[in-house]
Design a protein around this nucleic acid. Structure first.
Lengths: 189, 189
DNA sequence: GTCTATAACATGATAGAC
DNA sequence: GTCTATCATGTTATAGAC
């Protein structure tokens, strides 16, 4: 813009973005512990010290990369709610941002990531519970619905379970729909 | 028994068992990477070198601790199958052996643990798919059922999601039953 | 047989030359 | 501003004293 020599700040922002990209990829693939500053730097084609210079610490770099899982907007009515849940699963089946994958990958071994996931899923559960038709134990129902989607997302994206990995997303959604409806509806059998 | 001096071999087996116990606990709580031989030794009240002497390497110690998740026996008929699945979840809600928790805790960041889980869940999926009433995509249905239980187990045991953590196991099972039936039955809605 | 001492290595972080 | 060199630490694993 008005800067006398544009290459300075522009270059900085460009390499910073390149570092963030490599970090996203590695954190998502290997988790927090097994991702090293050195590996990030090599992947980005820069010096390890530069990564520290830019982001201060490995933890801060992870924080910059970590994105909260997309929150579901409130929906009213069982049908709309179930479709909302399935849509959010659609994200979990390929469209999930890499930053969210990084947090999920690390959530079982890194307490900070676990806190973030607990927080995000807790919010989702509250949202779903509030949108559920009146019945016993709405929070527990909501928690089970969210946990179901969590399990499917893990099986698909993080573990690569054979039958899930290759199934088309709309087929998965179609099979899951009645199960989510059963969780949402009061009837028990 | 017929050993001339019993304190030798007996003591060895006793401390070996104590080390295995501490290792189980720590691996289950912190995962493979964050569990150190030193911490295991301290918890067991022995010298770190002794742990190496007995088990050879950290990986071998983990292998000794790691137990495959309990496999479900084959069941025929939707009802029996669903009850079987719920029973295996009952395990996932408190009765899971610590060795299985250790593998699950590490499965997202340690490739060896991931392989073991993929293998075990793959077998479970095949078993369930074979027991399912004839319908389209039995493997995918089975994979979704198993992933659901996986998600609930993770939410309960590994993440400690507030509403799941405190819910009584039979209540959880009752709410989950219709959802699993919906996955098992051919009808889509 | 058990443990002290240490080797051999990788990591996150820092200081200072260019 | 960028990178070379290094520090301090923590890890698994080993060798040798007691």
């Amino acid at each position: 813009m008005s800067s006398p020599h544009r290459s300075g700040a522009d270059r900085r922002r460009a390499t910073e973005a390149r570092i963030l990209g490599s970090a996203r990829e590695l954190f998502a693939e290997k988790g927090f512990d097994r991702t090293t500053i050195r590996a990030v730097a090599t992947a980005a084609g820069v010096d390890p010290a530069l990564v520290m210079q830019y982001f201060g610490s490995k933890r801060e770099l992870f924080t910059r990369v970590a994105q909260t899982l997309p929150a579901l907007p409130a929906a009213t009515g069982t049908d709309a709610l179930v479709e909302q849940l399935l849509a959010s699963l659609g994200l979990g089946l390929g469209g999930l941002p890499e930053g969210a994958l990084a947090v999920m990958r690390s959530m079982l071994t890194d307490p900070a990531a676990a806190d973030q996931v607990r927080d995000t899923l807790g919010r989702q559960i509250d949202t779903v519970a509030a949108a559920l038709p009146p019945a016993a134990d709405p929070e527990l129902r909501a928690a089970l619905a969210v946990s179901t989607l969590l399990g499917v997302t893990i099986g698909h994206q993080l573990l690569g379970l054979p039958p899930l990995k290759d199934a088309p997303a709309d087929r998965t959604a179609a099979l899951l729909r009645p199960a989510l409806r059963a969780l949402a509806e009061p009837r028990e059998r």
